[in-house]
Design a protein around this nucleic acid. Structure first.
Length: 278
DNA sequence: CCACGGCCTGATTC
DNA sequence: AGAATCAGGCCGT
């Protein structure tokens, strides 16, 4: 067993099950899933993040980075004077915006379009079970996320058997674009928000919302601001935006109002709205 | 540039 | 029961 000292509060339940990642499983007090493409389990105990790896050891800094633990959330929220944001922060303290694998994140959010969390999880599981490498840890089985090449070689018929529906061709086309250019996504770590956004928008099945999800949940663009159904309702009902305003203008308004870390604040507000307001 | 309708699918509702 | 409706949007017109 390995340990990481926590200086920031970390709530695994909130971080892993707040709609940003779809493949974690909880059993007893452990959370099983993949970080850096390696199967492991995690739990938090007495200010330590404990973890056990299946085969290959995961570098400690990769885990640290996955939960974005170098970012001080207290500072972000203390420096931003907004009642609803403070309430959401106090309620869900310990919920971290993850830095996932960009490739898996991209596919996950293309699948998420006009769908729901259980369905997204199920589809991803079927896809990984079909193509991923199998790992075991305790009694749990995990399948790694397939590469672009592996997915690109599937037929549309096979894809639809995962329940992908009309998204199947988006996933296929996107995989084929990335297939021959492996650094295409990780290159965005070094590029700014606008360049990354514009490039992501060229992928089929990727619009403004999905692109912003990939930017905030995997590429560390902390001012990315996905406007989904819930955030849109929030902006209209709680921040007085005009219903008629276009989605992109709502997104820009959010980025301007919530500032440099608007994406992190967005995640708290999204979770708050979704949980308490329907 | 903006508004609108159609869309795979599985769960839930009536 | 079986038809409508709904759900973390995107694309084409």
């Amino acid at each position: 067993m390995n340990k990481i000292i926590l200086k920031e509060k970390l709530d695994l339940e909130l971080s892993l099950f707040s709609g940003q990642a779809f493949r974690w499983e909880k059993k007893l007090d452990w959370y099983y899933g993949f970080i850096d493409n390696k199967f492991l389990k995690l739990r938090v105990k007495n200010n330590f993040l404990e973890y056990v790896c299946s085969e290959d050891l995961v570098a400690q800094n990769k885990i640290y980075d996955y939960f974005g633990l170098s970012i001080k959330y207290d500072v972000i929220f203390e420096n931003f004077d907004d009642e609803l944001s403070s309430i959401a922060y106090q309620k869900f303290k310990g919920m971290r915006v993850l830095n996932q694998d960009p490739w898996e994140c991209l596919i996950s959010f293309i699948i998420s379009a006009w769908s729901n969390v259980p369905k997204i999880s199920n589809t991803l599981h079927l896809l990984c079970k079909k193509l991923g490498r199998k790992y075991t840890l305790d009694e749990m089985i995990g399948y790694s996320f397939p590469s672009p090449v592996q997915i690109a070689d599937l037929t549309e018929f096979e894809m639809k058997s995962f329940g992908l529906g009309y998204r199947a061709k988006y996933i296929l086309k996107t995989s084929k674009i990335i297939k021959d250019n492996k650094t295409l996504l990780s290159d965005f770590y070094d590029k700014d928000y606008i360049d990354s956004l514009e490039f992501l928008l060229t992928f089929p099945g990727v619009g403004d919302k999905v692109a912003n999800c990939v930017l905030i949940y995997s590429l560390k663009k902390y001012n990315a601001f996905p406007v989904d159904l819930w955030v849109e309702r929030l902006l209209i009902e709680d921040y007085g935006l005009n219903k008629k305003m276009s989605l992109i203008n709502k997104r820009k308004w959010g980025q301007n109002y919530f500032g440099r870390y608007s994406g992190i604040i967005q995640h708290y507000l999204f979770h708050y709205k979704r949980k308490y307001n329907h």
